[in-house]
Design a protein around this nucleic acid. Structure first.
Length: 492
RNA sequence: GGCGCAUUCGUCUAGCGGCCCAGGACGCCGCCCUCUCAAGGCGGAGAUCAGGGGUUCGAAUCCCCUAUGCGCCA
């Protein structure tokens, strides 16, 4: 059987990471089985439509590199892939089911339905339509009460029996038909509800497997009944576990970012999010955490999808992002970081940045950042012209806290020796400064600390000698001279 | 309220009757490495496998009940 799966988002806002995970699983399933991955826009809820939402969602899929074989932009044999452009299909099917007696028109007014609900609630009965319009007599009565009103079309659920969903993840789940109510398939405005539209499209588009969120499990018996009424073979279903926030409630804004592209904007790598999301509800074995896209495709299948809801652990995602940053070829990281730096470095830094300089700097921070967004702050001193601003007291650190004169003498000596260095590379610099510390009776760290602050303006920075090498002789000496002045002022 | 799904360290999970007085990872703590910070290495704390009944020579694994969480229906 050819595998054909679909990702069918509603363009009602931004793309939630939970939906992105669903998209990812569908994509992986398709790629693993050499099938087709289809994107379909489910825009039949006109009240909740958000302009631009489709583009945003497609952008998120592209960012994760989840390419689709059929759908918006690429077309396909079952175009259009936008439900609002397929109304004829749904209306025809609704009419057919009405003609065949499997569905009926309902003229009940919203007011009556509301009153019905209230009564049911008062009597502590489960809510649901009372099927008044299912009989010709009831329908006539409703029509008289609602003159000129346009009917909805409801599906006539079998009054007896059971329907069982053969879920690929959960096994058989059986529902009593009597508990299902006659749901609306076609609204009075001629638009289908999700139940009809999804069922119709899944059949017409020859979808073989429906991988969707667990929140749809309870609707599946309705869909199965629809397939049966239409004489269609249903696809296989697999309901994916939900993704929750820290408090075990459905993941929402309160838990941090929920929209897919917010992760891009916060400095996460698509491959890291891909890996992380792929492991939310699926596992390869008992130890593998870092999995390449190719390995995912090679191994992914529904049999290792879990059944329990997962809490989205941002800290683990961040750790994983660090792993991927460290794994990147330095030149690629440099290319990516260059864009962030162009944007985030302080305004006094001249643009465009010297790309070769960025390339030399990047290896020094590669294993020190977990987010791309951290680079600018950490490396600003490489780029700011002149002497960086910092609190002069930092030069003293702990060792020279009460002895600025000693610090001054040490830095003076260091500068003097450094002036004699021609080959300004890390090894040469270390060869000068390390023995000097001993000569001055200082611990290496204490001497290096003064120099670090002088040269970078910070107490925490990449390794000193490599940093100095990249900064270059002139910049280092200029900054150390400036520091001498500041130490002298402190010593006075 | 009804129906449904789920329940293994704080979190993601491995486990599909004996290999488990439960393994890995994140996070946390300690040590090592070390010019700061990271990264890395080593080690540690952390789960009476939600609770209770069964089935079985033997259960985290099978069955039942309860509890809790979540979902759907309005």
């Amino acid at each position: 059987m050819t595998v054909r799966v679909r990702f069918a988002p509603s363009p009602t806002g931004l793309l939630h990471v939970g939906n992105l995970r669903t998209a990812l699983f569908n994509w992986l399933f398709a790629r693993h089985h050499g099938g087709r991955f289809i994107v379909r826009v489910e825009d039949t809820d006109r009240a909740r439509l958000v302009p631009g939402a489709v583009e945003y969602m497609l952008e998120a899929l592209r960012w994760l590199e989840l390419d689709w074989d059929e759908g918006p932009e690429v077309g396909g044999p079952h175009a259009p892939y936008v439900q609002s452009e397929r109304l004829d299909l749904y209306q025809g099917l609704a009419r057919r089911l009405v003609d065949e007696g499997a569905a009926y028109e309902c003229y009940c007014t919203p007011e009556r339905l509301e009153a019905l609900r209230r009564e049911q609630a008062a009597r502590k009965e489960p809510p649901g339509y009372d099927r008044r319009c299912r009989t010709p007599e009831g329908r006539e009565q409703a029509r008289r009460e609602n003159p000129g009103g346009r009917p909805v079309v409801r599906f006539a659920i079998p009054l007896e029996g059971t329907t069982t969903v053969h879920d690929l993840i959960r096994g058989d789940v059986t529902f009593e038909n009597a508990r299902l109510d006659d749901f609306v398939m076609l609204k009075s405005d001629g638009f289908p509800t999700y139940h009809l539209a999804a069922t119709a499209d899944d059949h017409v588009m020859e979808i073989s497997h429906v991988l969707r969120g667990e929140d749809w499990l309870a609707s599946t018996p309705r869909h199965l009944l629809l397939y049966r009424a239409l004489g269609w073979e249903p696809p296989r279903f697999a309901h994916l576990p939900m993704i929750l926030g820290k408090d075990r409630a459905k993941l929402s804004k309160r838990h941090g970012a929920t929209e897919a592209l917010a992760y891009r904007d916060q400095g996460y790598l698509p491959e890291a999010l891909f890996n992380f999301l792929g492991l939310l509800g699926w596992s390869l074995d008992d130890k593998t955490e870092i999995i390449s896209r190719e390995e995912f495709v090679r191994h992914f299948d529904v049999d290792r999808i879990g059944r329990n809801p997962a809490i989205f652990d941002m800290e683990k995602l961040t750790w994983m992002n660090g792993v991927y940053i460290r794994q990147m070829p330095p030149h690629r990281l440099a290319a990516v970081l260059a864009e962030w730096l162009e944007r985030d470095l302080p305004p006094e830094v001249p643009r465009p940045l010297d790309r070769a300089y960025v390339e030399r700097m990047v290896p020094l921070i590669q294993e020190r950042i977990k987010l791309l967004s951290e680079a600018a702050e950490l490396t600003a001193f490489f780029f700011t012209p002149g002497v960086p601003a910092y609190d002069a007291a930092l030069l003293l650190g702990k060792r020279f806290q009460d002895r600025p004169a000693e610090a001054l003498r040490a830095l003076e000596t260091a500068v003097a020796r450094l002036r004699g260095v021609d080959a300004w590379d890390a090894a040469a610099l270390e060869a000068v400064l390390r023995p000097l510390a001993e000569e001055l009776g200082l611990k290496a760290g204490d001497l290096f600390g003064v120099v670090r602050v002088a040269v970078t303006g910070r107490t925490v920075a990449p390794p000193l000698f490599e940093t100095m090498e990249v900064l270059g002789r002139e910049r280092c000496l200029e900054r150390m001279e400036a520091a001498l002045g500041r130490l002298a002022a402190l010593a006075r």
